[in-house]
């Protein structure tokens, strides 16, 4: 018997011939959040700042300038071509002179100082940005290797809780949920920011 058939047969033995009915799952936890947008944006900002991310608010007309300003503040003096952006990032969000990710070997992305991407959805209550591998979010390595990550979030992308966030996603896409800069609690269970992922996270909140 193959290991597969053996294990499946063991499970059937363990559960017995007259199986108990599958228990009902009561989903009486919160699945919607009807707080007004302004409040959700305030909660998202509060959570992100709690994780030591930087949040900058701007109007739709000011995205590029705000992104450029955020990069200047995070990187100090830098060359425009040290910044790589997701291939689907709208032209009017892009900082001047930035390089578009063109599918070079992923490890080559480690040479850049910063990345700019959009997101698929943002979850206010947990301070979470979700990137889905689309042209707007970029492939996974793009938001991982450069040490500074700038994510542009539109107000309409912000939901209240985790259930609403997951419901909006493409389930088979390569998804990355990001809640603050990389961190560890492995030394005496105290949180310190900055390990292998980007040590700086800047969120540009539009609207």
């Amino acid at each position: 018997m193959s290991a597969r058939d053996d294990i499946l047969s063991r499970i059937r033995t363990a559960l017995g011939d007259d199986r108990a009915p599958v228990p009902e799952i009561a989903r009486d936890y919160r699945t919607t959040d009807d707080r007004p947008d302004a409040e959700l944006l305030a909660v998202l900002t509060d959570r992100l700042e709690d994780y030591k991310a930087t949040v900058v608010r701007c109007t739709p007309a000011d995205v590029a300038a705000t992104v450029a300003g955020a990069l200047g503040a995070a990187l100090g003096d830098h060359r425009p071509e040290d910044v790589v952006v997701a291939p689907g990032l709208p032209a009017d969000w892009q900082p001047a002179g930035a390089v578009e990710d063109d599918g070079r070997p992923p490890v080559a992305l480690a040479d850049y100082a910063a990345t700019v991407t959009g997101v698929a959805v943002a979850i206010a209550e947990t301070g979470t940005l979700v990137l889905d591998g689309s042209p707007l979010s970029g492939r996974r390595a793009l938001s991982l290797l450069p040490d500074c990550l700038v994510c542009v979030v539109e107000a309409a992308q912000v939901v209240g809780g985790v259930p609403e966030g997951l419901a909006r996603l493409d389930r088979t896409a390569p998804l990355t949920m990001i809640s603050g800069p990389s961190a560890t609690s492995d030394i005496e269970l105290s949180r310190v920011e900055g390990v292998h992922g980007p040590r700086t996270l800047v969120v540009v909140l539009v609207g």
Binding site: E125, S182, A183
Partner: peptide, 13 residues
């Protein structure tokens, strides 16, 4: 870890 959300969750299919 006692956090509202951990910094990174990866999901792949």
């Amino acid at each position: 870890t006692g956090e509202r959300m951990n910094p990174y969750t990866s999901l792949w299919t």
